[in-house]
Structures are given as C-alpha cells and as structure tokens.
Design a protein around this nucleic acid. Structure first.
Lengths: 228, 228
DNA sequence: ATTAAAATGTCATATTAATGTCATACGATC
DNA sequence: GATCGTATGACATTAATATGACATTTTAAT
C-alpha cells in the first residue's frame, strides 16, 4: 500500500516538481494549492504525510499546521515544512508549531526522499520498503517475498499485508478494529471477526517454518507480533 | 434486545447514513431531525444512547444536552456528540455539558461503532499508555505485558486492568465499589465480593515474583496498591 | 469472453479461557 | 468466643477465540 503524501504549495511548478519526485519515489502524491484546498482533501481521506509550504496565500503554513495539530483526527499526521530560506528562526517556529521536519528550498530530491522515509519509519514503518528480518522470518516488501528459515512461504495479499504490518510494528497489541484500519484501510466495512480468520490463515502459513507463535492472541485486546 | 439509538441530526443524508450504519451494527436507530422532535420520541420511549448533532436548528445540541442532563429521567442516558470540526473548545464544552463522548465529522463507521460499544459498556476512563514500573514490577500497556523482576506474568484481562489501575493510582485506598466503577465500568451490576476474588487472583499471579504484598487489604475500607 | 484458480469475507460450530457467585474457612476486633 | 469482614477453593456460566466450510468475488490464464 503506497503512502499518500499531501503537498500543499501554491506555486504550481514547484508543486508539480514535488509531485513528480514523490511519485518516482514510489509514493502517491496529492496536490493542494492552498490550506483551504488541503482541508478539503484531508476531509476526504487522511494522508500519511503532509508537505507544507511555509508561505501560502490565505491561511499561512504555520497557521494551518497549528490547526492540523489541534484537531484530534489530524493531530498525528507528520508534517514536513517547506521553507524558502533556511534561517534558524523559521526552523524554531516550525518545530514549535509541531512540524516533524523541515526542508529548505531549493531542495534536493534525494534529501526530500530521505526525510520522507525517515518520517515514515518513525510513524508508519509498514509504508517503507525496508527488508524485515526477525528470528529467521524474512519479509521483503520490494520483491514481495516471505521466507521462513530460507524456505519460501506462499500467502495471499491480505496475509502479506498483515504480516508486513505486524513485522513493522512488533511488540504492540492491536485490536481487531485497529488492524482493519491499518491493514485493510479505514473506509472499508468488514466484520471484526474476519480478522481472526486471516490471523489463522497467516498462522497456518507461518507454521511451515515454526513461526506461528510469533503471532500471539491477547484475549480481550487483540493480537501482537512478538518474539518473546 | 437491541439497543435503541436515537440520532438527532437535521441534515437528512447524514441522518440516513448514520441510521444505516447503526442498523448494520445491530442496533435499532431512531431518527429525529430536531431537539423538539427528539423530545417527543424520548417521551415515548427512552433510548439507550443519544447521538446528538452539535448544530441544530431551533434548540442547539448543547442546550438540548443540558436539558437532558437536568431531567432525572434522561440524566443517565449516554450522549455522543457529533461535531463538524473537532476543535478542542467543542470537546471541552461538550464534556462540560455532560456528553459521554464525541465524534467529529467526517466520521468512520468503524469509529462510530467502537464509540457506541464503548459507551454501552461504560468502560472505565481510559488509562494512559505509559510504561509503569514499581519495585521491579513492570506493566506495559502498549505491548500488554507484565513482568515481575523480568519474569513474564500471565493474567486475564480483568486482572490486567485492575493492576493497570492500581499502578496508575498507587498509595490510595479504593473501596470495592470504586474499583468496580473504575475497572469494570459504572453500569455493571456485580457483587462487591467479586472484587475480592479478582484481588486474590491478582495476588496469586504477583506472588510469582514476590510482589503480592503490593496489594494491601484495608479492613473496612477496601484495597490499596502501595510499596510501603 | 470464458474458464479455472485463488483469495476473500462470513457464518456456524467447537474449543478454550475468563468471569462471577457461592459456601466455607480464616482472622481480626471487641 | 461472638461477630464482622476478608480469603479461598470450587463450580457453573458466560464470553472470547479458533476452526472448518462455504458462497462470492477477484485475478489470471486461455
């Protein structure tokens, strides 16, 4: 599942350039030319990251960031600020407002990608393409392959995403609804109990290499991926 | 017996959408397009939960909530506020007025269901996610793990919540009914003596790492979690 | 377009764990 | 030692999860 990155930038050429870079980096860019426009897009679907220009017509980037931070729904979306000059003052202000990172123009695509990746790693590791290895269980998002003790494990797409999510977020309990939101997507209406079934399917597959008890049931709470 | 959920919302499409979700979730939706209309329905039969739009023509949602709270008959009906924007101010006001929870539009059906479920169950106020450590006893809400001197301790959901509550509120005596309210939830009809049983179960588990006397009996008053 | 294969979500049922209550034992307090 | 409050063990009931089967949808292959 590609990460959705919302770019808020009033200068069209820069916006397009950013969007191009982002899509080349394997993410899904969403374009907004103002804070108001961005709000509309956000109300339709929450992006995973917001790239926010400092200077915007209408509501400024700072104010918009503040607003995003004060709303429970958008509070946790990472914001990367785009600033024209890199004076320290801006940096401080940006961090005060709650930006997770900031980039100065002219920016280098490589730097941009690095920042995005860093932020994703911190907030939503399952959206990165990092190779995951735990206790002889390997999942490669790039080649879309899973092996247990070097034995290839075949599974359906849903089980793959589920395992990917779990391996990216180990040692944490997730309720069935949280898993549905994170692995299936938030606008889908599926029974909680369906999660159980996919957990079983995944466990069955992992059992081929004795990794089935990496997925643990926490009665009354949900499931946890753990090596302990 | 299905729970009756009264929806008070003036915008017809939203009302229908809510009603649809609610009936799919196995509840019985009742529709009202204004506070006045709602009052009429309430006078016929008391609903189990009221979903109340913040902005209503005629009497506003806030005023209506106040009114409901001031009437002995309707005082105890849980109210979930529906707000267009989730600014903190609204939240505060809503809670002041006595709303039990609030949801911001656009809401996800799953979130709505989760809230309804939570309100129906009247679970204890949410405890934090912070790691709790006392005298070698550790409770991690995130991974849902308890260890005593690094030895894993297994326990049921109720004992976990009980311990979580105690560790979050140490050095304080709680009566059995207070514990029932805080750990089990307020609308539940359970014998006071049952608390004793769970205390014993918890003590038994904690005894594996010699932590059993962190839970002390205060004769005539209740129990206390204390290191002294 | 047609067919076959794979994947998916839901349901009914089985299994297991957790829960609440009771009867009784214990211990403190007067 | 009588009384009151608490501890404990057993047990029936309830609740949560696991499982197998199945209908439907998606995907891939021809």
């Amino acid at each position: 599942m590609k990460a959705n990155i919302l770019i808020v930038e009033d200068e069209s050429p820069i916006l397009e350039l950013l969007a191009l870079n982002i899509s080349q980096a394997g993410y899904n860019p969403l374009r907004a030319i103002s804070a108001e426009h961005a709000e509309k897009l956000i109300s339709e679907a929450l992006p995973d990251i917001i790239l926010l220009d400092w200077m915007l017509p209408g509501m400024s980037g700072i104010d918009f960031a503040k607003k995003l931070r004060s709303n429970a729904l958008t509070k946790t979306i990472p914001i990367i600020m785009l600033t024209a000059r890199s004076d320290e003052l801006d940096k401080v202000k940006g961090l005060e407002v709650g930006a997770d990172d900031y980039i100065t123009k002219p920016y280098s695509p490589r730097e941009l990608n690095a920042r995005i990746k860093a932020v994703l790693r911190r907030k939503a590791p399952e959206l990165t393409e990092d190779l995951l290895k735990i206790n002889g269980l390997e999942l490669d998002p790039v080649s879309h392959r899973v092996t247990g003790n070097n034995k290839p494990l075949e599974m359906g797409p849903t089980e793959f995403r589920l395992l990917h999510f779990f391996m990216s977020n180990p040692e944490r309990v997730y309720s069935r609804s949280q898993l549905l939101d994170k692995v299936w997507g938030s606008q889908i209406f599926i029974e909680d109990r369906t999660v159980d079934v996919h957990i079983r399917r995944l466990r069955n597959i992992l059992a081929q290499s004795q990794h089935e008890n990496l997925i643990q049931t926490i009665r009354g709470s949900g499931y946890r991926f753990s090596t302990k």
